[in-house]
Design a protein around this nucleic acid. Structure first.
Lengths: 353, 353
DNA sequence: AGAGGGTGCACAATCGATTGTGCAAAGGGC
DNA sequence: GCCCTTTGCACAATCGATTGTGCACCCTCT
């Protein structure tokens, strides 16, 4: 078994109390003599003492552990954010428990309960869905919480999100400015914050440019690859298929690429594609992908800061909602339909001569 | 504060002992009357009791928590394996603490110490480097450990690895069979198990086909993207550049792609490329990538099974080293130099006529 | 009625660390 | 020499859950 305070106490010939006080640097407050102090330090070093963090956590009700609830850590966006967050908090003396929920609200609730039982100091949550009683409960118990990527507008809570609305809006507007009017969107999980905002951006952009919304072009219901694959297949089979597709997550994009590939559809010649979420390989795809990039590093670091601040101030500080701006990266996956018309015009003119 | 056994005891009018026994389903062993049992159950339900896992862990020395030490969770391969592992062990009632080491042995040692202090029940470790005193210590303390992806041949320990040697060997042989002799390898972190094996596969394949090894073609020292980028740039600038490059991790591949892209090098026309590690987007890249795929799901599941078995049998069972076979996926990133010669021959013949 | 056995539960120690309080011993002032 | 202060440390409770042991009480049998 591990070395305990008691072992040190025996070796140093003092009480457990004294050992604890020395090791916690409280020798001044409790007037431990310099002599005793070195004696204890010596013994501790020789025995290679490591505090039992379960016992300490039980006593102090602080575990220096943070829990993160993520929908799916195999999604590159979430994986990257998790990695950054762990790096950040580790520097501040915290460790991270990671829980994947597989986008299932029941699992999410269970995992949060489990983490509470483990006495963690704070939560970073990327919630599924739009109900949030379980998160309200956390707030009620004064547990530090930061929502990440997805949030709720109707509660006062720390949150770090990207302006999904504007991101989607700009993406769609970019497509429209290239002459498209038949634009499809493959949604992620319905009723998530991110999906709602992205859909709103899609709708508003079309509305602004007086393009009638065709609900047949609004498809999908899941952030995963299979969703992107199936919906793209179906879109391609439509009588009046879209000329451009907006995919709302990296995994959806992956599925869409697969379907387009199998259908022998060239991007952007046959179909234009714009994605939400950065994809590392985007520039090197058959068609370098135009996409909406989220500031991933900044998201993770901001969330980490917010949470640790909340823990240190014991929730006294006001809750903040921080909205970060995504960026549209234009590459070469959107066909310019005007140019086509132009060239057709030229060809026509040439014919007339 | 959370509800404790004591709260239930008061509400039910019995002792804490009895409450504990009822809730742990030990009413038979300790002869608790059916009456008392329902009384306690009622009270527990009404108060929405959740056991304090710190206290339980302290007492029982079991926390139902597993720690995973991963070099870099933002690496897609590691992220996927971590996700699968978490899913698997969660079904068995365990949760997962994730620690990234950033390929730093010092961090790795620290993290392992930390996890020990947290009283976790077992480790899954993807170790950095070739020294393993810290892991020997774990074995000495009878902590269940499973190595994953990387292992050491000189200790008796549970491990799940891929046959990196054969994977690399086949990849290089495939390149050779397409007529290449100037083949470069961009290595990952030196002296890691995976890197050593992959390098050995590279060497042996060349040797088998009587191709002299040019050490100028053996470059790189890190599994990250920047390494792939820089080394590819340098390779392209060589006086006598390679005609094919073997990248030994997905992030190295990403960096290499970037360098090739910037250098306006077409794959496979100008340079051939074969990668180790599956990349989701591989089929849809400008040149659909030929690569060595590792059975990721299987790796994770096997490791999970092995670890849980080891925990349940308290290390009584014999240690196993499980070697899984990778698969060479041939796409279109290797140029066939014979065909070129063929066509040159045809052209020459045509000229002669 | 008294012995013997079974039933049903509580006492108290334990895991390891933290901390308010109390109490000797030493030192100083008169 | 006596009282008071200061110094230096230990006692014991506490966090919440688990478990070996002990002990009333009741029933039954002789």
């Amino acid at each position: 078994m591990l070395v305990t305070l008691n072992d040190i106490a025996i070796k140093a010939g003092v009480s457990v109390t004294t050992v604890s006080r020395v090791l916690n640097n409280k020798h001044e407050k409790y007037r431990i003599s310099a002599e005793t102090k070195t004696l204890v330090m010596q013994a501790a070093k020789e025995l290679d003492y490591r505090p039992n963090l379960l016992a300490r956590g039980l006593r102090l009700k602080r575990t220096h552990t943070i829990g993160i609830i993520v929908p799916d850590i195999s999604n590159p966006f979430f994986a990257f954010v998790t990695h950054m967050l762990q790096m950040f908090i580790y520097q501040h003396g915290y460790s991270l428990i990671v829980c994947s929920t597989n986008e299932d609200i029941k699992t999410e609730i269970e995992q949060i309960e489990l983490l509470k039982s483990k006495g963690i100091d704070g939560f970073v949550i990327m919630p599924v869905g739009t109900t949030h009683n379980h998160i309200d409960d956390l707030l009620g118990e004064d547990k530090p919480v930061v929502l990440l990527d997805r949030c709720f507008n109707d509660i006062n809570i720390n949150a770090v999100v990207v302006d999904n609305y504007t991101g989607a809006f700009r993406a769609i507007e970019h497509i429209i400015q290239n002459g498209h009017t038949k634009i499809a969107i493959i949604q992620g999980l319905l009723n998530t914050y991110t999906n709602n905002e992205r859909l709103k951006g899609y709708r508003e952009a079309l509305k602004k440019h007086n393009i009638k919304i065709n609900t047949d072009y609004i498809v999908g219901n899941d952030f995963r690859k299979e969703n992107g694959y199936i919906e793209t297949k179906l879109l391609l089979k439509m009588e009046n298929p879209p000329t451009a597709i907006f995919t709302t997550s990296d995994l959806i994009t992956l599925g869409a690429l697969q379907a387009l590939f199998e259908g022998n559809c060239k991007i952007p010649e046959d179909v234009s594609l714009v994605a939400f979420d950065d994809i590392d390989f985007a520039p090197y795809l058959m068609a370098p992908l135009t996409l909406v990039r989220q500031p991933k590093e900044l998201i993770a670091e901001t969330a980490g800061k917010l949470l640790i601040e909340d823990i240190k101030t014991k929730g006294k500080k006001e809750k903040k909602k921080i909205v970060l701006m995504p960026e549209l990266i234009v590459r070469n996956s959107v066909k310019n339909l005007f140019e086509k018309r132009q060239s057709q015009k030229y060809e026509a003119e040439a014919l007339l001569k």
